[in-house]
Design a binder for these strands. Structure first.
Lengths: 185, 185
DNA sequence: CAGTTATTTCTGCAGAAAGAGAAATCACTG
DNA sequence: CAGTGATTTCTCTTTCTGCAGAAATAACTG
């Protein structure tokens, strides 16, 4: 394996660790992302020096995230895998997964807490207000997140390319300071 | 401590754990967020049942993220702390912190890997292309992130309230399907 | 300068998580 | 039904991380 590829695999694996994805999973994903053609589980285990079982479990997780897919290869009974290479698809799927697994439960928990606080006279007025504020805020973000995930990738890309200029293109460019016209507000 | 408050502290603490913030830090933050008035490190240790030293370290971290601040109290030599209660400030500071600590290193690492790949004949054409694509993608997102953090909170809020309708308000609403006018594309 | 309060650093412990490998089970093919 | 590949489950080991507490240091006050 070329040093650069190896580096990428290692870095990506490490990165995954920081983001709550386990290292093996991230490494396998990295390897498949750079692979020219579909490869088998055994090849993966071989290339990365990890146990077959570990590869099997990790593949299962990656399939769950829809970041890789199984592809049949003529004349070979073994399963081969290839990665999703459309980066927007990738990003979207990761974002969806994280939202479902982390954000949604948080929102639910928060709602529950706020409900409990409403009925409790021992909770100060200040605390109650802050809880409500937090709940509203999170709900707003959550809603936004959903909407953005529903917008087709190419349009999102256009939005991003616009960057902060989007602010000026819309009506609320009428802020106090008049002349910040170059995306640097 | 009222049950609802305790619940919030616990939930928030737990949530922090999932996001790479350690539990004590998140709990202290939750407690301060709901507090009516500035409180001392000792009170915190007391309320949450953790060691003074632990509180001291956690406070230091929270100060680093600028999520809480020190405030003097008349007639009391001890230090008191209060939380930032503006949720947009909070979100912005967390986002900035995470970017600095996680995204930026990743971008740098990726750039490094791409450079290495360019000079290496052992790296296949496909792999090289994919690395470049990844690098470009991440750089774009990184740039966007920076720009958004620079936009004042109230404008961001306006954008978010618009949600996916923002797409239609801008010129590239001329997609194939004509009539999706209610934010549900 | 003595006494009090805060911070900081270091060390050790405990719990959680990750990964590896063995073995059992399942599925398919000829 | 024998043989091969794949998945799944279980357990063991190892590694990490969080947290507590002790001790050293620093800052301030009367």
């Amino acid at each position: 394996m070329a040093p650069a590829v190896e580096q990428f695999v290692l870095r990506w694996g490490d990165l995954g660790g920081q983001w709550g994805v386990n290292r093996s999973v991230a490494q396998i994903h990295a390897l498949l992302y750079l692979a020219e053609r579909p490869i088998t589980a055994e090849d993966i285990a071989d290339a990365l020096g990890m146990a077959r079982s570990n590869v099997s479990n990790s593949i299962r997780e990656l399939l769950g995230w829809k970041l890789i897919r199984r592809v049949p290869v003529l004349g070979d009974r073994r399963d081969h895998y290839e990665a999703e290479t459309d980066l927007w698809q990738m990003a979207t799927r990761i974002a969806q997964g994280r939202k479902q697994r982390e954000i949604d439960p948080a929102v639910a928990a928060l709602r529950h807490v706020v409900d409990a606080a409403e009925d409790d006279p021992r909770v100060s007025r200040v605390a109650r207000d802050r809880l409500r504020a937090m709940q509203g805020f999170v709900a707003t973000l959550d809603d936004w997140y959903d909407q953005m995930l529903a917008v087709p990738p190419n349009k999102i890309m256009a939005l991003i390319k616009l960057g902060s200029r989007v602010v000026n293109l819309l009506s609320f460019g009428r802020g106090k300071k008049g002349a910040d016209k170059d995306g640097k507000d």
